[in-house]
Design a protein around this nucleic acid. Sequence first.
DNA 1: ATGCCCACGACACGTGGA
Length: 270
Amino acid sequence: MKKLSIASWNINSVRAHLPHLLNWLSRRNPDVLLLQEIKTMADTFPAKEIEEMGYNLLISGQKTYNGVAILSKYPIQLENKFLPGMDHDPQARYLEAIIETNPCVWRIINVYVPNGNPYPGDKFSYKLQWLEALRQYAQKILAFEENVVIGGDFNIIPTDDDVYDPVAWQDDALCRPESRQFFRSILNSGYSDALRLQTNEKKLYTFWDYQAGRWPRGEGLRIDHFLISPQAADRLQQVVIDKHTRAEEKPSDHVPILAQFNNQETQGIE
DNA sequence: ATGCCCACGACACGTGGA
């Protein structure tokens, strides 16, 4: 049974958390990993260590802030370094690639959506502009009927089931109705929230703030997601949130999420 | 209680994160 495993992790500085990353890669061995907040330029990215583990690399780097990368055990072809419609984005938040496996082809989109706080303000407007461009592009590529995986840190808490205290967070940019509406709109156009195809369980989080003892209190947010096309949804087999990484020494404040797909030519639905 | 913690840049503390 051929499978393809795709993971996403906001690493909060790839250099500061490189030992964690290498350990995790050797344990989990995903075929593809989407990294956000690498916080470094391509020339200072620890490429050698990662390539030695058998990964091809695409990097959209930025000094100090943001920055995204795609790791792939399969050959990887760059499609876009900018979200269409955000072609002059000064912030490195997007990478789109085609990954040709055998036999399936996958369109992989790595997003680091702007946080948008404080609300209201310029940063919130930038977030909405970014989400509108993502909504339009996501809808456009559905026509290709491909295996599409849009993964990353969306900085959106989709529903009140995805946050430890919905009332305290109701006016935060991650919870604002405008942010949630874009998330729902992408779902309504035909994508699925991969985790929600698997479970309706509440309090499944991917982020716990460093402050105020949020991790020991179990007070987190679900803001890292996979939005997948109908073709990819038909292939989805499993979604895992790797919660234990948050308990490690000096961790990222986000944990990895993994999605496993059937990667056979036919799916056994004859 | 927009602070508590953490990373960055580059030396002191300001900016950004969520």
